[in-house]
């Protein structure tokens, strides 16, 4: 075993949930005894395929965690059933909505996706030094933007919006970094 890259990408819980659901669909449903499972769940020779034991546990436990009652993910999937990538790419993504106005870093975006803050207390947990970086009104505005992006019905997003090439704006991603340097000089 050789680790080529310890961290090639960050995943949001939403992306993982979608992936796990897709993986699970490949295997026949245990409760589905009458053998009416879909064709995909069988292997080349139409034998029912069984998930490896470790994976079976993951399906059970990780899906329970991701789909738990308190989680916002089921609703998120319901509002973006066909094209979930619009949340991450294109004009309708959270990044486009917020990066125009606020400097947030990658970790903060990731947690906005994962926790979907609904109160200012939660938002201040996610955003480092929220008190000194943003005013109360700005935080309120971030919350509104977050709920606007997440609640946006997929139907209202134009076809292919997630594939449109947009101008890069990564300079805005610097977030807290610059501020940190500035303080040190003082």
């Amino acid at each position: 075993m050789k680790i080529k890259e310890a961290q090639s990408a960050l995943l949001s819980n939403h992306e993982l949930l979608l992936h796990l659901r897709a993986e699970k669909a490949e295997y026949p449903d245990k409760d589905d005894k009458d053998g009416k499972d879909s064709k995909d769940s069988r292997d080349g020779n139409h034998h029912a395929r069984k998930p490896p034991p470790g994976l079976e546990n993951i399906f059970k436990d990780a899906l329970t965690y991701l789909e738990s009652q308190e989680s916002h993910l089921p609703t998120l999937i319901a509002t973006h059933p066909e094209r979930p990538t619009t949340l991450y790419k294109g004009q309708h993504s959270l990044f486009r909505a917020l990066s125009q106005k606020y400097r947030l870093n990658k970790a903060e975006y990731l947690q906005l996706y994962n926790l979907r803050p609904s109160s200012q207390v939660q938002l201040e947990l996610i955003i480092e030094e929220a008190g000194s970086r943003f005013t109360d009104e700005q935080l309120e505005d971030i919350l509104n933007e977050v709920s606007r992006v997440f609640d946006e019905e997929e139907g209202n997003i134009s076809e292919g919006a997630e594939h449109v090439e947009l101008e890069k704006m990564d300079a805005k991603m610097k977030g807290a970094t610059k501020k940190r340097g500035a303080r040190r000089k003082v």
Binding site: I3, S8, A9, L10, L11, S12, E15
Partner: peptide
């Protein structure tokens, strides 16, 4: 929370 790791293996 979750990341992707690239692994080479036999």
């Amino acid at each position: 929370m979750f990341i992707l790791t690239t692994i080479q293996d036999l």
